[in-house]
């Protein structure tokens, strides 16, 4: 092994890891995209029956971990009680 090569060339594995993480986050989001948008619409409709919410303030996200997929739903509900539907 050439000792100079060892110092001159950057390790490539960390870059591979980083590129994969970015790419797969994208690809996973794209493949669960349809489901997420359907869920988002339906969840929004259910909540809107009881509370007035801004459609822009509803975030639905799908994440995969070891034993399950995690569906994260983040809904901002306005504090002002006057805005709440009857």
């Amino acid at each position: 092994m050439n000792i100079f090569r060892l110092f001159n060339k950057q390790r490539s594995a960390p870059l591979a890891r980083e590129r994969l993480q970015v790419l797969l986050a994208h690809e996973r989001a794209a493949s669960s995209c349809d489901l997420v948008s359907i869920l988002r619409e339906e969840i929004l409709a259910v909540i809107a029956k009881h509370v007035q919410v801004d459609a822009e303030r509803v975030h639905v996200k799908m994440d995969r971990s070891e034993n399950m997929s995690i569906l994260e739903i983040d809904v901002e509900i306005p504090l002002d009680p006057a805005l709440q539907a009857a």
């Binding site: 490539s12 594995a13 797969l24």
Partner: peptide, 18 residues
């Protein structure tokens, strides 16, 4: 992997999470 030229076990495990 030790030299940093190949993905490590931990890297692959973290990325695929199975």
């Amino acid at each position: 992997a030790q030299r940093g030229d190949m993905l490590k076990v931990e890297d692959v495990l973290e990325i695929l999470s199975i």
